[in-house]
């Protein structure tokens, strides 16, 4: 059974079965990365275009590596965002790329909904690699994979998401994936960094990190964007670090076997202390490794699907 859809745009649109299929496929593909010759021919002759309108190193590299391990040809295309402001629409850019017979377009874009908009306009499969504050579905899938790998399951776990949920696509996708898979989700942040009506997503809201951590199985730290200071969302980095930095003492409030995750890049000493980041509890580098497997699985499933259906149609 393939993935019966043309695109992967959001976690919101995925069923639990689809998520499980992606994770199982990723599991069987993970072994490829351990071989001497890290390559399978699954996507030989296919073209994957990484279309990144925002600077990104790790996500783009991860997609690139995933495509290459599947033997696809990969093109990296990073138009400046200023060309959008000047009036060239995303769709124009994407149709150009489609005309070069791209099979899969991996899109990162600063506007929420950009991937959905693109998917409606091109025949190529579209994978959302992050659209504004909206979603970052592959990050959530690799996080689910990592949790499953370390904990054996997602269902029934207590997962704490710490930091700027309001402006985080990672948080949105993770909340959706975790609740679909049956985890108990807590979010903890200053109220200025929690979006309107977040409790409607089935999460419990905390304002103090110490309270949220008690009994946690998994702690997902979000990166603090320093530019938030200018929008009166925070008094200072110093105060944020005092209240929200994950220290060894705070980690002790969680369950003894708790794991710590972070989508990177880390602000050491701000949201996470170096001793936690470098501890055995941290699975941050496993997330990076798993990211390649999960993205391989996705490209494999999207290219191999027989009947195609566009998400959200």
């Amino acid at each position: 059974m393939g993935l019966q859809r043309k695109d992967l745009l959001t976690i919101a649109a995925l069923t639990v079965d689809e998520i499980q299929l992606i994770l199982t496929t990723a599991e069987s593909l993970k072994e490829v990365g351990g071989r001497d010759i890290k390559k399978v021919p699954a996507l030989r002759g296919k073209t994957v275009v990484n279309l990144f309108f925002e600077p990104s190193t790790r996500t783009r590299t991860s997609f690139e590596l995933a495509a290459k391990r599947l033997s696809a040809d990969v093109i990296n295309f990073s138009p400046s965002t200023s060309s959008i402001v000047k009036g060239e629409t995303l769709i124009d850019t994407a149709r150009n790329i489609e005309s070069m017979q791209a099979d899969i377009i991996v899109l990162r874009h600063p506007s929420p909904g950009a991937a959905e908009n693109l998917a409606r306009s091109v025949r190529s499969s579209v994978i959302n690699a992050g659209d504004g504050w909206h979603e970052h579905p592959t990050q959530a899938l690799l996080d689910m994979f990592t949790i499953k790998e370390k904990k054996g399951r997602v269902e029934g776990l207590t997962v704490v998401i710490v930091g700027d949920v309001a402006h985080s696509r990672v948080a949105r996708s993770n909340i959706l994936a975790l609740t679909k898979l049956g985890a108990e989700v807590r979010v903890v942040a200053p109220p200025t960094m929690l979006p309107d009506s977040i409790e409607h997503f089935g999460v419990t809201v905390f304002y103090r990190l110490d309270d949220a951590l008690i009994g946690a199985d998994v702690i997902i730290m979000l990166r603090l964007q320093r530019e938030r200071l200018s929008r009166a969302l925070l008094p200072s980095i110093r105060e944020y670090a005092k209240l929200f930095c994950l220290t060894p003492e705070r980690l002790n409030l969680a369950k003894p076997e708790a794991i710590v995750m972070h989508p990177g890049p880390l602000n050491r000493g701000v949201e996470i202390s170096p001793s936690v980041a470098d501890s055995v509890a941290a699975v941050i580098l496993d997330q990076v490794t798993n990211g390649v497997s999960v993205r391989m699985a996705l490209m494999y499933l999207l290219s191999g699907s027989g009947e195609r259906s566009t998400l959200n149609e």
Binding site: A12, R169, P195, D196, S197, I198, F201
Partner: peptide
């Protein structure tokens, strides 16, 4: 509009 829908869509409200 700022509300549940803007939160779901990741749109500034």
């Amino acid at each position: 509009n700022e509300g549940i829908v803007s939160t779901e869509l990741g749109m500034p409200g």
